[in-house]
């Protein structure tokens, strides 16, 4: 049976507000990323998952926050559920990722998390999901 939260409409105005609030910073982080992938090895999750590209810090930021900015906040619950795994499971916000240009990747993931949380998209202990949150 679908969860009540899964059918709740997304407050796109709130998302847009949150995105605009940090637009100057995040847009500069996203647009000056050289897409060099040199941040990969600094992520312990990337190393622990046999160098699986989806754990690369820049991939996580671009796929979550980058997409949110690209869509200008006009997203549906399906999209937020898609990025849920990226921002809540694939990144633990340890802050060890190293960008040669100096981009602070955790702050991007943290904003994507805040946006997800504002729309009640976050992992729960009683979640009956095939995905492991460990």
């Amino acid at each position: 049976m679908p969860n009540h939260d899964e059918m709740k409409p997304v407050d796109t105005r709130k998302i847009r507000e949150m995105l605009n609030q940090k637009k100057g910073k995040m847009k500069r982080y996203l647009s000056f990323c050289a897409h060099c992938s040199l941040c990969a090895e600094s992520c312990f999750l990337y190393m622990a998952h046999h160098k699986d590209s989806q754990y690369m810090p820049s991939y996580k930021a671009i796929q979550s926050l980058g997409k949110l900015y690209k869509k200008r906040g006009k997203v549906d619950r399906k999209f937020l559920t898609e990025i849920k795994g990226i921002v809540w499971r694939n990144c633990v916000l340890c802050g060890r990722c190293y960008c040669p240009i100096g981009i602070h990747i955790p702050s991007m993931i943290a904003l994507a998390r805040s946006i997800c949380r504002s729309q009640d998209v976050y992992p729960r202990l009683d979640e009956s999901s095939a995905e492991s949150w460990l």
Binding site: R28, S31, F32, H35, G102, I103
Partner: peptide, 17 residues
């Protein structure tokens, strides 16, 4: 105006680190 702007921001981001 493009990601070539890392020419400037490479140095500016050092203020934050």
């Amino acid at each position: 105006f493009t990601k070539l702007g890392h020419m400037l921001y490479f140095f500016l981001y050092r203020f934050l680190i």
